[in-house]
Design a protein around this nucleic acid. Sequence first.
DNA 1: GCTTGACCTTCCCATGATGGGAAGGTTTAG
DNA 2: CTAAACCTTCCCATCATGGGAAGGTCAAGC
Lengths: 150, 150
Amino acid sequence: MVAMNISHAAKLSGVSAKMIRHYESAGLIPAAARTGAGYRLYTLDDVHRLAFIRRARAVGFGTEDIRQLLSLWQNRQRPARDVKRLAVEHLQQLQARIADLEAIADTLSHLIGHCHGDERPDCPILDSLAADSAASAAARKDTPRRKKAQ
Amino acid sequence: MVAMNISHAAKLSGVSAKMIRHYESAGLIPAAARTGAGYRLYTLDDVHRLAFIRRARAVGFGTEDIRQLLSLWQNRQRPARDVKRLAVEHLQQLQARIADLEAIADTLSHLIGHCHGDERPDCPILDSLAADSAASAAARKDTPRRKKAQ
DNA sequence: GCTTGACCTTCCCATGATGGGAAGGTTTAG
DNA sequence: CTAAACCTTCCCATCATGGGAAGGTCAAGC
């Protein structure tokens, strides 16, 4: 098997045909060779590259990170330090996102804990979202040229 | 102050003018009254509604959730149970996302721990992303009509 | 009265990864 | 020859947010 078309490469690599074309247009993979009719042709090397991308995506790397990882992967001389630095930065971003989400979840969890959740209409969750306190705080900073429009 | 224009409402509510227009087009807020010249006019009630939306966004609710929360907020008779159910569902989704991210972070963290990160070129992080093992697994399932294209 | 600057309006575009789907060409089996 | 299963490119949608252009409006200062 020297060459295969896109859906076969998709099955082998685990990357959808749609995304293979996308990665090509994004420059993560070189433009595929074409048949006379214009069909893309892939080799096993291409499939490996695609699978690499799929695994990198699975651990959350974005397009630009992957571009760098691919470049480091190709370069047999690169110091492992460069790869590790990229991974550590990415991990830190992940942890920051996790921390943000946990803060949100804690807030929500707290609100939920205070809501009896039965038939009665009073609800601390809505009360908290409606809280007027913070709304007027930002108002002091503006210097409106006029108090009303029109 | 009976009415104000959009930038003032933005300052008071903490929602950008851009997003106020967006929420209007999305139907989260009623279409604003207009001056003769077509300028939008807002009341303090509108500002409260906008601030409500801002706080709901801050705890991660999406547009459709907020639409329901606003409707529950307006309805004085609603049972707190309905609000709580919405919040609990949202919290569960948040927790699921957090769990996903944590799994990714753990994997990455593990890889990083195995990488010496110095000048040498051997790097378990890249090795793992390049791992051939999983790549060929999916291949057995397909029944290619032809082995090669062209 | 005219200019200036700070507003306002609508419309289009971009993000990032992914997929849906249309319109139309190609290949191969039957 | 036809039908099915491919392939191609192009456009659109997600989700919330903002940037920016083109053009209209308003208040203030001269």
